[in-house]
Write a protein that binds this DNA or RNA. Sequence first.
DNA 1: GTCGGGTTCCGCCAAG
DNA 2: CGCTTGGCGGAACCCG
Length: 315
Amino acid sequence: MPNPQRGIQEYAKRMNAVVNHIDLHLAEALDLDKLSRIAHFSPYHFHRLFAAWMGETLGEYLRRRRLEQAAIMLAGQSRLAVLDVALAVGFASGEAFARAFKAHFGCAPRDWQSGHDARWRNYLQLRQKLFAQVSNPDQVRPGEFSDHVDSFNPETEFKMDVTIQHLPATKIAFLRKVGPYGPAIAEFWQQTFVPWIKENQLQYQPIFGIGHDDPSITPPEKCRYDAAVAVPDDFVATGQAMTATLPGGKYAVCHFKGGVQDIGPAWMKMFRVWLPESGMQYDTRPCFEAYPAWIDDKSSGGIFECDICISVKPL
DNA sequence: GTCGGGTTCCGCCAAG
DNA sequence: CGCTTGGCGGAACCCG
């Protein structure tokens, strides 16, 4: 009779297909009927399974994803029209969007947008002050930068010299972690992902860390992270692993070298400082960190290198 | 896997 | 002028 382990993997595969489809087609009309067909379940059965699997109903998840995408777009592009953002994330009217946004984030879309704009203008001014005082670092009072984004390690080389690259689509196998970003990610690599890629003889393939959510917007316990490795087209996933295709297309690529505590702030800087000034806008394809291949002593001393890749499209 | 009913929330019109 | 809020009918969702 059927193996229960197989059953769980089959459910995971179907649920994952739906979640993937939602992220890639956020702007389209996605109702229960359509998504349940993708999952190969009947609508009503699917609804229950999804809620049990994800900890929120399909409707709640879909609305949350749309609002979070919108929040990212608004925070990064201060001149984007609210209505355009609403349509881009799949709301069919600006009114419904404004209401849902306020209910979720506690403020109107426009206030969120201008608030972020003001915060980051302020941040840029403080940063210029810091650079002006670089010959006399003692004059920078401790606590002047209270926000976590300012905790750059001097060892860190992060110059934001960004190039726009056209990356090819890549077949990947990945292990997903849902939970707070930060130290838990490093632990996840060491204890779960690295053993898995070694078992599968994949340690010399390009690898990727895919952060699907912005931790300043998505609740920490809902943040999704994929540790991924490039695989052949005919690769069959083993264990908890899933396969997917990393979409090709335009990415803003920037090299990072530094401590694990600085990678988060580097992402923030890219999104909130570089992106608004770039003439590009964030696209809904996933963003990721790219590593040429696994190196055993990669994180020795806490210093590592990677390329930060942000999916973009012209304004 | 299916059905039905209560409820929420969307989408349109209008005004602030 | 674009965005937000309020009212309202109806569709979609949610859950027993």
